[in-house]
Design a protein around this nucleic acid. Sequence first.
DNA 1: ACGTCTTGTTCAGTATATTGGACGAGTTCA
DNA 2: TGAACTCGTCCAATATACTGAACAAGACGT
Lengths: 186, 186
Amino acid sequence: MDDINTQVAERLRRLRRTANLSLEELAQRSGVSRGMLSQIETLKTNPTIAVVWKIARGLGVSFAELVGEETEPEPVRLSRAADADYLYSADRAFRSRPLLANVPGHKVELYALRLEAGGAEDADAHPAGSFEELVVTTGKLALSLGAERHELAPGDALFFRADRPHRYEALGRRAFEGLSLILYAG
Amino acid sequence: MDDINTQVAERLRRLRRTANLSLEELAQRSGVSRGMLSQIETLKTNPTIAVVWKIARGLGVSFAELVGEETEPEPVRLSRAADADYLYSADRAFRSRPLLANVPGHKVELYALRLEAGGAEDADAHPAGSFEELVVTTGKLALSLGAERHELAPGDALFFRADRPHRYEALGRRAFEGLSLILYAG
DNA sequence: ACGTCTTGTTCAGTATATTGGACGAGTTCA
DNA sequence: TGAACTCGTCCAATATACTGAACAAGACGT
């Protein structure tokens, strides 16, 4: 609670100085009084979200930027192929290896995928608003979204809505290998 | 201003339903009264940031998630290897192909990288707070962060801070190929 | 059917956010 | 030096956020 007010106070001071604006100039741009701006910067009040929104707009930054929050993730993390954990489909033709998740400030996950030649895999819908960027590194793949079907070769990439069911099929004689980046809403 | 309040109202309703919490249960978890929660959801008040913070904590989500803002990206986008645009280093040993950028609500970029066998490439620091997830698909690579050096084989992945200079070197007789996911600070 | 409990909304009193103006300090110019 | 101006902070009045309790509706069990 006080953390968020401290954050906003510090970021507001910094952004305002960066923009070389006085309290009066920002008051005029934002429609929030000079006195209120001073009280926010000196932690003497707890502003409403509408006030913070108006200030962000006056500063020409997003609300999220004015409020900004995250903790520092682990600086270096090495995942070896030799130590990989895989998730398999029932028939073991489809393999998924989680590479990245839980990065503060980011709602993304990265997976290395493999599907045996001739194999097929139906993927459930991810949560509403999710997208996927699928990159083919080896083999050929058909990606189906309902009646829409895309055939992908090595080096091809497809960005699509992942919040509906979709289907992977490995075409040709080689197994499909590639990467899947999931971007979650929010 | 009213936009931010509408957003918070809708997201609060959605998140609370998803979590299957009544107003009373969330009131107890968050320390914000049932009446206030109702007034926020029904757009009858403009909450302070401290209240929104407490609600987010009670819901187990970040402040940014409760407040979230973005527009809908393009639903399907296919990038063919045959149509790829590449960025080359001066000696053309290093090649970078942008695969993904500008997804609303996400501060990530995805690149396919290639470095000729024996080649080296120095990467400038990305903006403060940036991270990179580097995945090796072909060849062997050494990634140096100052004095810290990591050797990576196919299938290996390294997560590291990208807001300082780093160096790529292709080891062995094969060219390095892989993917680089850049995560920018929020 | 009735009593009890839960749920979301509304109400009125209290706490505090927000304002415009006053104030003191610092700067600039004649 | 004094006047005029800018700047950030504080003050008191007004507006509104926030609470606990009341209310009405619905669900459940006897």
